[in-house]
Structure formats: structure tokens, C-alpha cells
Amino acid sequence: MASQTGGMFRLPAWRRLLQPLGVVTAMSVVNFFLLRLAPGDAAQVLAGEAGAATPEYVVALRAQFGLDQPLWVQLGRYLWHLAHLDLGYSFRQGMPVLDLIVQRLPATLLLMGASIAFAVVVGAALGVLAAMRAGRLLDSLISIAALLCFATPLFWIGLMLVLVFSVWLDWLPVGGMFTVESGLTGWAYALDVARHLVLPAVTLGLFYMAVYVRLMRASMIDVRRQDFVRTAVAKGAPQHRVLTRHVLRNALLPLVTMVGVQASSVIGGAVVVETVFSWPGLGRTAFDALYQRDYNLLLGILLCSSVVVILVNGIVDLVYARVDPRIRLPR
């Protein structure tokens, strides 16, 4: 495994750059055809909203959106505009797709980052506690809690958290990203956003926290049985040094790998969480664009999601190389 990962880091720079570009292009083509397989289009949706729309009006709308062209012509135009960083125009939102994504992307990245950080920190800590008390009551309680979080739907967790912490206790806001009428600035605004972020981030992070708890527990138990750990203990190394420098550092490797693998599913989960909490991110925007058949906007969001996943995996590779001293990045 280490040799394969090291080989990946020894790829030439042009191949490391060409690979993500190829992945993004392939995903763009696949997304284009998948959306075209869905019934209906933006012209039919707008015509239906207009009520008594004539066939001539529908034809005019399809010509305006370029939907009357052959499929291969539409694909060619889409890839040509994509090469020039032109994601098209959202007729439903009345603005360029790129501008809309730039407005909504920071909220989604904030939610993703907070939920992943919560899941990794809490999941790793609980996994270490469960491994240190393997077979005891604390291990059983942590495992049961992790199983419940893993098996419970995200939307139900979100609704229950809102019911408890927003309705009953009135500790946290029900939804949104900030208090609109407050007019806060500076640190007060940051604290207000943090209060609104707690429930969505915890809701999205609980599922992944459960996965990391089980993964960290199994990894810790496996590493503690290795010969190098027994050797360190036999040499009289302090227990905290054995735990942090030998056991914990090596046990983190599978968890770091899993974070990169689950980056795409975090974006998918953000669709549900952003809808429940009215969080103004790309997930909720994609949900609305799907029902409105806003293909340009939906393609732009899917493309942005692919780029985010590739960047997250690149960061994970850097962290992996930092945690595992056997891996060296090229200079």
C-alpha cells in the first residue's frame, strides 16, 4: 500500500495536472447526458407556469435556451463554453451561473468544513476511548451510540435537533445562516454565523462521526498489536509517547483515507441538511434547480462539486504524506 501511494506522488507534474482535468471533463460529459435523460426541460416548466402557453411559445422558449439543437451540438457548445470558464446563464435566477455559484459556494464550504472537522475530531476521540476500553462498558456505550447515529436518517436528526435545541430550549436558531434584521458586523457577525452553523454541522457530521468511531477503534486495536508497539513498550517508552507517536499516528492513516473517499457523500448530504435548515448553499440551490429543470445551473453546481472533491482529495494526500513519514511529496 505504501509503495503504491508513494508511486502516485512520484508522478510527473504534468500528469498530476492532467489527471484531474480529465476527471472533470469526463464528469461534465456524464452529467450532461444524465440530465438530458430526465423528462422535461426548462421550456416546459416555464410554459407550465405560464398557464395557457401556446405551442409557438414553447418552441420560442426552446430556441432561446438552445434546446432545439441536436444533442451533440449542445454538448459541443457546453464544452466550448466550459473551456472558457463560461458556465452559462440561469434563466430561472436571472444571473450568470458562475456568479451564483460564487455567492453560494462559501456557505457550502463552511458547512462541509465544520461538519468534517466535527466528525473527525469527535469520531477519532471516541474511537480512541473505545479502543482503550475495548470490551468494557464504555466501549459498548460508544459503539451503540455510533450505530444509532449511523442508522438514523439525516433529516430526522436535523428535525429532532431543531425541536430540542431551538423550540424547547431556545438555545440555537431554527435555520438560516445569520440573523437578517440584526445588522451585525465583525466578530458579532462571525459569532452569529457560528450559532447558526452549530445544528447543520452537527447534523451532517453525526453520520460520518459514527463511521470514524468504528474505523478508529478497529485501527487502534490493530496497531496496538503490532511488533513495533511491543518493542517500544519493552524499551520502557512512556505510555503517552507510545500512544501518540506510535499507535495514534499510524491508526490515523485509514481515517485520513476515508475522509477523502467520503468527500463526495458529504456534498450529497449537504443537500438534505441545507434544505432542512434553510442554509443558503449549493446543496439547496441544486435541489431547487433540479425541480425547475435549470440545467445550466445544475451542471455548474455538479461541476463545482467535482472540483471540490478533487481538491479535498489533494489536501488529504498532503495530510497523508505528513502523517506517514514513509511518503514523500515531489519537490
Rank of each mutant, 00 (worst) to 15 (best):
L109C: 02
A289P: 13
V266A: 02
Y78C: 02
G176S: 05
L299V: 05
Y295V: 06
L148D: 05
G176F: 03
M95C: 01
M132L: 15
L17T: 10
L154Q: 11
D288K: 00
L141N: 07
Y212C: 00
V307S: 05
C304Y: 05
P330F: 03
R62M: 09
D222W: 00
L129E: 08
D86P: 14
R92V: 12
Q69W: 10
I116H: 04
L197G: 02
A38L: 14
L79K: 05
L206C: 00
A218F: 04
V271P: 14
D192Q: 00
T244S: 08
L302I: 05
Q74H: 06
A63G: 10
W156Y: 02
R36M: 12
G123K: 07
I310P: 13
R104H: 05
P106F: 04
G281F: 05
R224D: 14
L199E: 04
F65P: 13
L148G: 02
A63I: 13
L79F: 09
A47K: 03
T5M: 15
M258N: 11
G135Y: 08
V121D: 00
T231R: 04
R214M: 08
Q74L: 02
A237L: 15
L18I: 07
I327V: 14
Q93F: 05
A114T: 01
P280W: 06
L37H: 11
L206A: 01
T257P: 13
F118K: 04
G236E: 02
